[in-house]
Design a protein around this nucleic acid. Structure first.
Lengths: 315, 315
DNA sequence: CAGTTTCATAACTTCGAGATATATAATGTC
DNA sequence: GACATTATATATCTCGAAGTTATGAAACTG
C-alpha cells in the first residue's frame, strides 16, 4: 500500500491545526481540496482516520500514526526548501579555491576566516599550486577559482582573469634588521646576507633571481629553501636572512609577526595578482559571493596599502 | 521554494541506486519519467543536482543534501505503508474491551496475555462494569467490545450478542475444605460456613442469593465482600468460607490456586456468557482478530471443561 | 430551535506524471 | 579513433488527480 507523501503532509496539517479549514489555510489550499484528499486517503487506506461526527476533529489511532509520518515528510520538505534557499543565496555550498602557496597562506586564508564569519555554512576547500596545474584543475572542474599572479596577456581564451592587485614584490627581513636602519641600501650591503628561497618552481623564485640580477647582486647565498610561508616567516624573523615576498603578504603580516620590507626598489614583475575562473562553468552562488568578497577585500587592502605609503612619505 | 516530496523521493532513489535507469526501476517507473522529473527539479531549484557529464552519476553538494531529505521522505512513506498494512491485517491497533470484573480477571486477562504473544502491537484497554454501563459505553463508542453474561432475549436491537459459554455457576471453596470430602452436601452443612459475597450490584451477587434460596439456605453469614477476584481468591483459599463463582473461572484458576468446586447443583442462571458489540460500528481489524481469538479460546475452554467432566464421571 | 461554523459534494479546468518511441551523449573495446 | 553499447534526454500523447467555485448537509453555539 503506497501512500502519496503529500497526502501524509495534508493529514499532518489537519491534525496539527485541528480541522480541515485550518489545515487547508495552513497549506495554502482550499478547504474542499483538502477535504477530498482526506476522504481519498481514507478510502485508500480502508479505515477512518478521524473519529466520525466529533467536532473538534480528532484522529483515530491510525490517523495519529500516519500524521506522525506526515510530520516527518513536512519536516523534510521544509528542510529542503531551506537548503535550496541557503544555496541560492550563497549562504551554503562548497567553494574550491586554489592558489600559489605564499598568497594563500599570507593573504587569502585570513580573508577566508573573515568570509566564514559571515557565511559559516560555506565550506572552503583550499589547494596549492602554480599556474599550470591550477588552470588544469580549473578546466577539469576540480577547483572553482584560482588566485594567482599572472601576466594578463597570457590568459587563455577559456578562462576569465580579474586582476585585483598589481604585482609588487619587496625584499623582506625581520624588524630591527641592520639594513632597516639605512636610508638607502646598496647592493654591496645586501650581498652580506644570506637568502631564504621560495621553491625553485615557483614564480616567486624567478622574481627573486630577477630582483637580485636587477640590483646587480649576481651570486647569492641561500640559507633556507623549500619552506612554506609559516617556516619562511619563522626563519626570517629569527635570523638576518632576507627574502622576496609580495608586498601584500608583508603588509598583511606586519602586525602579527616581526617582519618588514626594505626600502629598495627591485622592479615590478609584469604580473598582476588576480582571480581566475573557467568561462564555460557558471558559478554557484556561494562561489560568486566568495569571489566578490575576495575582490572587495583586495580593494580595501589596496587602499590601506596606498594610505600607509602616503603616511610614510609625510613622515 | 516549495519542493514536491515525491520529487525528493525520486532524487534519493537516483542517488542511492547510482543512475536514472536503476532509480526508475527501483521506483517502478519508466526511465524517461524519472529523467524528466529530475530535470524539472533542477530547473525548479535553479542549480544542477548532478555533476554534468560524469557517467557513474554523482550528485552535487546540493543534490546530496536534497537526496538526504528524500531519504527521510522515503522512510516516512515506507513506515506509513507498514503502519497501514499492520493495521489492516489486525497486527496493530487498539482494542477497548469491557466486562464484568470476575470474568475479566479470571478468564479474559489470561486470554489477552496469550493473544499478545501473537500480536504484540495490539494494545488492549480493559475496563470493568456491569451490563448497563457497558452497553452505554458500547453505544457511545468508548469501548469496542464487551464480554459479559446476558439473557439472550434481553439483548437490545442495536447490539449484537454472540454467546460463547453457557452460564454455569458453582459453589467454590479451598481445596481440602471439609465439605469436599462429602459425596453429597446438604444445605444444613453448607449453612455452617460463612460466605464471600461479590459486590451487591453484580449479577453474581444475584446468583449467590438465588442459589442459596434454591438449596433452602435462607439466611447466610457474609464474612467478606467487595473484593475483586484476587482478594476473593486469597480469602477463599485461606479460609473455610464459600462463594459462588462461574465454573469457567474456577476451571481456569484451579491449577494455579488451591480452589475447587463443590458437587452441588445450584441451578443455572438463564444467562450465557457472550461477546457484545455495537451493530452500527464496524470493527477494526485488530478487534475482529481479538474477538475471533476470544471466541476460539472459549470453544477450546468448553471442550476442556466437557472432557474434564466426563473424566470425572469415570473415576 | 435558529444562527454560525465546519465539513462534504458537485462540476469543471488545468497541470503534471505516466507511457512509448526515438534521438543524443557518454563509455568501453578493438 | 571508430564502433558498439549503454545511459540519458526529448517529443508527443493520455489520463488522472488536484485545484478551483458554488452549494448542500451536519454539528456545535447560545
Amino acid at each position: 500500500m503506497k501512500l502519496d507523501p503529500r497526502h501524509l503532509e495534508i493529514l499532518a496539517a489537519i491534525v496539527d491545526h485541528g480541522g480541515l479549514t485550518e489545515g487547508a489555510e495552513a497549506l495554502g489550499k482550499s478547504q474542499p481540496s483538502v477535504s477530498r484528499t482526506l476522504s481519498q486517503l481514507e478510502t485508500r487506506v480502508g479505515a477512518p482516520l478521524f473519529q466520525p461526527g466529533r467536532r473538534p476533529l480528532q484522529p483515530t489511532e491510525l490517523g495519529a500514526m500516519l500524521a506522525d509520518q506526515g510530520r516527518a515528510v513536512l519536516k523534510a520538505s521544509r528542510a529542503s526548501s531551506d537548503i535550496v534557499d541557503r544555496y541560492l543565496t550563497g549562504h551554503a555550498g562548497l567553494v574550491r579555491v586554489g592558489g600559489t602557496p605564499i598568497f594563500m597562506d599570507g593573504v587569502i586564508s585570513a580573508m577566508i576566516a573573515m568570509f566564514q564569519q559571515q557565511m559559516p555554512d560555506v565550506r572552503v576547500d583550499q589547494s596549492y599550486g602554480y599556474a599550470a596545474e591550477l588552470t588544469g584543475k580549473l578546466r577539469n572542474g576540480t577547483i572553482d577559482m584560482v588566485i594567482l599572479p599572472l601576466q594578463q596577456e597570457t590568459v587563455p581564451e577559456d578562462l576569465a582573469f580579474q586582476p585585483i592587485l598589481p604585482g609588487l614584490n619587496v625584499i623582506a627581513c625581520r624588524t630591527g634588521h641592520p639594513l632597516t636602519r639605512k636610508k638607502l641600501v646598496t647592493p654591496d650591503e645586501i650581498a652580506r646576507y644570506s637568502w631564504i628561497a621560495p621553491p625553485a618552481d615557483s614564480p616567486l623564485y624567478q622574481d627573486l633571481r630577477r630582483a637580485l640580477t636587477n640590483i646587480g647582486a649576481e651570486d647569492f647565498r641561500i640559507s633556507f629553501s623549500g619552506g612554506s610561508l609559516a617556516s619562511v616567516i619563522e626563519v626570517l624573523s629569527g635570523s638576518d636572512s632576507l627574502t622576496v615576498l609580495p608586498y601584500s603578504v608583508v603588509f598583511m603580516m606586519r602586525e602579527k609577526v616581526a617582519i618588514t620590507a626594505l626600502s629598495l626598489e627591485i622592479g615590478h614583475p609584469d604580473r598582476a595578482l588576480g582571480v581566475l575562473v573557467a568561462r564555460a562553468r557558471d558559478e554557484i552562488p556561494a562561489l560568486r559571493r566568495f569571489r566578490s568578497f575576495v575582490v572587495a577585500q583586495f580593494e580595501s587592502l589596496s587602499r590601506r596599502i596606498a594610505k600607509q605609503q602616503s603616511d610614510r612619505l609625510w613622515r
